[in-house]
Design a protein around this nucleic acid. Sequence first.
DNA 1: AACATCGTCAACCGCCTCCCG
DNA 2: CCGGGAGGCGGTTGACGATGT
Length: 334
Amino acid sequence: MGRSPCCDEIGVKKGPWTQEEDEKLIDYINKHGHGNWGTLSKRAGLNRCGKSCRLRWTNYLRPDIKRGKFTDEEERVIINLHSVLGNKWSKIAAHLPGRTDNEIKNYWNTNIRKKLLKMGIDPETHKPRTDYNHLMSLSNLLGMSNIGNTFSNNPLGLQPDITHLAKMQLLQNMLQIMNTNNSFGNMGNYPYNPLGNINPSFNPFNLFLNGTNTIQTNEPLGLSGGEEYAMNPSLYSYGQSESSKQDISKGESSLQDLDYSKMRSISCVNQEENLLPALVASSPRIGIFNQIENDRNKAQMSIDHSPSNAIFDDWEKFLDDESSGGSYWKELLE
DNA sequence: AACATCGTCAACCGCCTCCCG
DNA sequence: CCGGGAGGCGGTTGACGATGT
């Protein structure tokens, strides 16, 4: 039994299209429209199955196809729509004029997916990857072992390596942030708001937290929900009015409970409110911590030029540094 | 220069949904 | 209501160029 393939006719051509075939297809559709793809193939003098013709037309030959690299804006829209819709490539493509579902799917799989993985985000769920969860145990480890004393009690009487100490300080700060930044909804865990604008309180370390994501839904939403929110700039601004916030909350969107106004400076506040004992003097900041802080500032300064890449690259750069040979964190985690 | 590996993307496969008789 | 055909969609493959060794 089984279902017979649609293109099992003997002699039906498969594989890459030739220029001649393309011209025949374009010529026929320009004159007659596509109508029934099955009959089109024969009428246009193409020895191809209808599906193949349709695919070739919709994914490549259509005159309104936009070719070339995806822009930062397009990339942000894809990520945000994907967080709402999942792998509904055709729905996502509907919001990106000139882009095909196939192209978006390919771009996701070859670019965005890897970027998110690199950031420790599961690209399927937009939640933190579970294999990072063990990082949380470090919090306890730090508290129990009092690493600062370990250094000062060095039996060899050596001065603790200053870079090492700085890294430990960084780790401690990470953990502080992780322990305190989960009170404002998880958009603080995400580099972009649904519009694709930089979320000012995005902190990658939040990604190690509880893993919930208010954007994530089990069911794909209609345009009245996350999609509308994601696509309509008038519904979003960091300094939005109370009335506009109300408008948003009236919708049935899973995004309705987000209050971005709370997110703006919470990282800084929490870091100051809930400090663990410092492992090294907090001022002046030194070593890698200072470098990362500087990098982050640079990234912030460059937001005007390339908002998405600034944040992505900043975080990626950090992870790259640490994942290349002799990773400090890798050693620590192992 | 030769070979291996990686990245990209067009195209195919097969399942699902919709529509029509 | 049911069955079959066509179109739509998402997952996957494989060719090919780029890059690394």
